[in-house]
Simulated assay, not measured.
Amino acid sequence: MTELRLVIFDVDGTLVDSQADILAAMGAAFAAEGLEMPARERVLSGVGLSLPETFLRLAGEQGQDTRARMIATYCTAYADLRQAHGPRSSPFYPGARAALDRLAGEEHTLLAVATGKSRRGLDRLIEAHGLEGLFHSRQTADDHPSKPNPAMIRAALDETGVAAHRAVMIGDTRFDIDMARAAGVASIGVAWGYQPAAGLGADRIIHDWAGLAPALDDLTETIS
């Protein structure tokens, strides 16, 4: 019998393209305090971190109370956008849903999520895209320190009972890859996300979803 393996996905910038709503909600948060929003590239470079870490990076010169208000405004604006747009709010990247379905059909593969989203945000995305029952572990920023702390991956390993040498983290940012390394699992970086692929430092880089299966097979065989 083939030993189980665990494939852990980041969400924003990896599975779905949520940048339109992220930027709009961020704009609302800064505007509510009479502040100018940082450049698009700077905002997107922090996607994947928890919201307190994100706003510390983007508005660290503001006081803690101001940042707390900005986080609350961001969350409300993001939720309103998701409610208004439904699945169109964070569309799958081409080929992402098919890749998930293929992996879910493998008896020796379990799927998990490790995301900087809140649990409420992740649950709403899963509901909107009809992904209920697909992920065996859902790890969010509500329950763990921000990436790149390895707590989310370690919790997913504990929850599924899969050994670290049979797990792979897939993400689009250095936060994902550094988290994987800290947890002792292999990593795959995607080239279509919010940070340049050349700087990720992942074990493998894929440029489309067709490259996922061979990369996974190679890494789980190599590290088994």
Rank of each mutant, 00 (worst) to 15 (best):
S137Q: 06
D65Y: 03
R88W: 12
G133C: 04
R69Y: 12
A99Q: 00
L122T: 02
L131A: 09
K147N: 01
R67C: 10
P87Y: 01
A96I: 12
T76P: 05
T115F: 15
D123Y: 01
F135I: 00
R67K: 13
Q83S: 14
H129D: 09
L131K: 02
R102N: 02
E132I: 06
H136M: 15
K147H: 12
Q64G: 01
R69H: 10
K147T: 05
A112F: 04
L134F: 12
L81W: 01
Q64Y: 02
A77Y: 12
P91N: 10
G105S: 06
L125M: 08
R138K: 03
H136F: 12
L103F: 11
R88F: 10
G121D: 07
P87D: 01
H144G: 02
A84S: 04
A112K: 01
P91L: 15
R69I: 14
L110H: 01
R69N: 09
G95Q: 10
G130P: 03
L81C: 04
K147S: 09
H108V: 06
A104Q: 04
V113R: 00
P87G: 09
L125R: 03
L125Y: 04
A104Y: 14
D142M: 03
T140M: 10
P94R: 13
S89M: 01
L125I: 08
L134R: 07
A79L: 10
G116R: 08
H85W: 08
R67N: 11
T140L: 11
P148T: 02
L122F: 06
A84Q: 07
G105H: 12
Q139R: 06
A99Y: 00
R120K: 03
D142F: 04
A112V: 00
L81G: 05
A77Q: 07
R102I: 02
R97M: 14
C75I: 08
